[in-house]
């Protein structure tokens, strides 16, 4: 299996701030790779180094077999990029921007472009200034997805999209993977990465702290449960996979590993459930729990 992106020991400083501090990242050809981290962890800086917009201070970076700084122009014809915060030219219409970016990359598939406009429900006649944040994001997404490229670099692409459009986006990314394209998807939303990605790298304070398949990272995907019970919650705290139990009378709150969810729920129903809420933990909570000791 070949590697589309390979980064090792990447360092990038802005003045005194060390944005990237020895980052490692490896993306295999043909996979959807999640690039996960809280805001300000260095995701966008990494991507901008990969695009040759920033020059690395130290470390090895290889992208599609080339050096992103030296071979920028040739490499860019083989990739499409969606920035996290899309700015458009105020006096160009969305359709014009899509066509322009496509032509710069060496042409785009007109049928696919029109199909994507339809699926994303985007009016290409509006001027850049009049688009909302979500619609600006759609312009960049359509331009990227309609291009015939090997690699898609998506920096928090769903910020500003409504849930309906998010699911359109997820279907599109799945299709891209089926066509054999490689996707680097940066995100701070765990659920999005869970649905889409084959492998995930987690970055914090400019370093990769974990890399692996979702199964490898299963310990990260806990569920938070809050329940009102008929009787006292005896014995739930001792179950395997249950963490941070708090009980107030008949009310309990705890986190449970996804693999042990079934057992925990049985214990709850045995005690008699009056009300139940469950929610996936936010990434911030996970980070707080897992990486607190590694410090800021």
């Amino acid at each position: 299996m070949t590697t589309a992106i390979s980064v090792s020991g990447l360092v990038k400083s802005f003045g005194r701030t060390r944005a990237l501090d020895g980052l490692d990242l490896s993306v295999r050809t043909g996979e959807v790779h999640g690039f996960l981290g809280p805001n300000g962890s260095g995701k966008s800086t990494t991507i901008r180094v990969l695009l040759g917009l920033l020059r690395a201070d130290a470390g090895e970076v290889t992208l599609l077999g080339g050096d992103p700084w030296r071979d920028a122009t040739e490499l860019h014809r083989r990739l499409a990029y969606v920035p996290g915060d899309v700015s458009l030219w105020p006096n160009l219409s969305g359709g014009e921007v899509i066509d322009l970016l496509g032509r710069l990359r060496g042409g785009l598939d007109r049928r696919r472009r029109d199909e994507l406009l339809d699926r994303f429900d985007l009016d290409p006649r509006k001027k850049g200034r009049t688009y909302s944040k979500g619609n600006r994001q759609k312009v960049a997404l359509v331009a990227a997805l309609a291009s015939d490229v090997d690699l898609l670099v998506l920096d928090e692409p769903t910020s500003g999209l409504d849930p309906l459009m998010e699911s359109v986006f997820q279907r599109c990314v799945a299709e891209e993977r089926d066509r054999g394209r490689t996707v680097l998807l940066s995100s701070h939303i765990l659920a999005e990465v869970e649905t889409l990605c084959d492998r995930v790298s987690i970055i914090r304070a400019g370093r990769a702290v974990e890399t692996g398949t979702l199964a490898d990272l299963r310990h990260l995907t806990r569920t938070s449960i809050t329940a009102d019970l008929s009787g006292p919650p005896d014995g739930i705290g001792e179950l395997p996979g249950v963490h941070d139990l708090k009980a107030e009378g008949n009310r309990v709150r705890f986190d449970v590993d996804t693999s042990d969810l079934d057992r925990a729920l049985r214990a709850l129903t045995a005690a008699g459930v009056k009300s139940l809420t469950s929610q996936p933990p936010t990434l911030e909570e996970l980070f707080l729990r897992h990486y607190q000791e590694s410090g800021r």
């Binding site: 160009l92 359709g95 014009e96 921007v97 322009l100 710069l104 290409p124 006649r125 001027k127």
Partner: peptide, 26 residues
């Protein structure tokens, strides 16, 4: 008032020079 723009780019809007012309021509 703001008028809607064309749904597709004219042939001249291609390449860096085409974009610069579009941005600078006014």
């Amino acid at each position: 008032p703001m008028r809607p723009g064309p749904p597709t780019a004219p042939p001249s809007l291609r390449g860096p020079l085409g974009l610069a012309w579009r941005l600078q021509r006014g």
